[in-house]
C-alpha cells in the first residue's frame, strides 16, 4: 500500500503569539514550529498500516525551507521518503490553492491512500483534504478514527456527534482526513533521526508540478487578526429570592442566551 501523508508545519501551541505589523497574521519571527497535531496522527496511522500491509509511506509538506524539519521528523519516525513542495508562488495560498498543489503532486506520485489531518491548528479550515479529493476525483471520508483496508477497498470509521460513529466503505484510492487521538504517537528515536539523514526528500516547484500560477490566486484573504477584547461586567440583582431567580432566568434567556 502506497500512502502519502500530508503534514502541515504549524506554530507550536505554546508559542508566544504576536500580531504582525500589517495586522493580518501573527509575527513569524519568534515562532517555533511543530507538525500539526491531527497530521501527526495521520502519519502514525500510515506507519501502522505499512507495518501491517507493507508498502511505502511518503511524507509530503508544502511551505518554505523550514518545513523540511517536519518532513525529517516524519522520516525519523519511519516514513520512507519525503516530498517538499516549495515555491514563492505557494506563499499565500488559501485552502483551495494548497489542495490544488497537493493534489497535483499526489497525482504525479500515484498512491493508494492520501491522508491529511482533520484540520490545521493554525487556520482550522478543515477543507484541504476534502478539496484535494474533489480535485482528484476520488472518494473521501472526514474525521476518520479507524482505517481497515480490504482488496481494492477501504472500510473507515468516522466520528459523528454525540458519541456516534459511522462505518463507511469506499473504493481505493481515496482521501481520508484523520482525527486526533486515534492512536498512540511513536517517538522519533535517535537511531531514526540519524537514519532519516539518508532518506530522500524530493523538492517540487510550480514548474515541476506543471501548475498554472494564475489558478493559485487566493479566493480568500485575511483582512484583520486581533486579540479578542475581554469585557467583564458584574451586575447585582436585588430583591427577594424568587424575584432574583426570575430576573436571573430572564437575563440568562434573553441577554446571555444560554438556553
Amino acid at each position: 500500500m502506497k500512502i502519502i501523508v500530508c503534514l502541515k508545519q504549524v506554530p507550536k501551541n505554546d508559542s508566544i503569539l504576536r500580531i504582525n505589523d500589517q495586522g493580518n497574521w501573527i509575527q513569524d519571527r519568534d515562532l517555533t514550529y511543530e507538525i500539526n497535531e491531527s497530521d501527526a496522527y495521520g502519519l502514525e496511522a500510515a506507519l501502522q498500516l505499512k507495518e501491517k500491509q507493507g508498502g511505502e509511506v511518503i511524507a509530503l509538506s508544502l511551505g518554505p525551507a523550514r518545513v523540511q524539519s517536519v518532513i525529517k521528523e516524519a522520516l525519523a519516525r519511519g516514513a520512507d521518503r519525503g516530498i517538499h513542495l516549495e515555491d514563492p508562488a505557494f506563499d499565500k495560498l488559501d485552502a483551495y490553492g494548497i489542495a490544488a498543489v497537493i493534489s497535483a503532486a499526489a497525482k504525479a506520485e500515484g498512491f493508494d491512500l492520501l491522508l491529511t489531518g482533520l484540520q490545521s491548528d493554525d487556520y482550522g479550515f478543515a477543507q484541504t483534504g476534502v478539496i484535494a479529493a474533489e480535485l482528484l476525483g476520488l472518494p473521501h471520508a472526514t474525521i476518520v478514527m479507524d482505517v481497515q483496508p480490504g482488496d481494492g477497498s477501504l472500510r473507515v470509521k468516522r466520528e459523528l456527534e454525540n458519541g456516534y460513529f459511522q462505518w463507511v466503505s469506499m473504493p481505493a484510492p481515496a482521501v481520508l482526513t484523520i482525527q486526533s487521538g486515534i492512536n498512540t504517537l511513536r517517538y522519533a528515536t535517535l537511531k531514526g533521526i540519524m537514519g532519516a539523514k539518508k532518506k530522500e526528500i524530493k523538492k517540487l516547484d510550480v514548474t515541476a508540478l506543471g501548475i498554472d500560477k494564475a489558478a493559485l490566486a487566493p479566493r480568500m484573504e485575511f483582512l484583520r487578526v486581533y486579540v479578542p477584547q475581554k469585557s467583564k461586567q458584574t451586575q447585582f440583582i436585588e430583591g427577594s429570592p424568587a424575584e432574583i431567580a426570575a430576573s436571573l432566568m430572564e437575563k440568562l434567556r434573553n441577554e446571555a442566551r444560554v438556553f
Binding site: S15, I16, S69, K72, A76, A188, K197
Partner: peptide, 26 residues
C-alpha cells in the same frame, strides 16, 4: 498566559534539525 522564552539568545538557530528533534523526543 504566554509561555516563558527559554531561548533568550536564540541558540536554537545554531542547532540542526536533528539536534532539535532529538531534544524534542526526550
Amino acid at each position: 498566559m504566554s509561555a516563558i522564552d527559554l531561548d533568550f539568545f536564540r541558540l536554537d538557530n545554531q542547532l540542526s534539525d536533528e539536534e532539535k528533534l532529538s531534544r524534542q523526543t526526550v
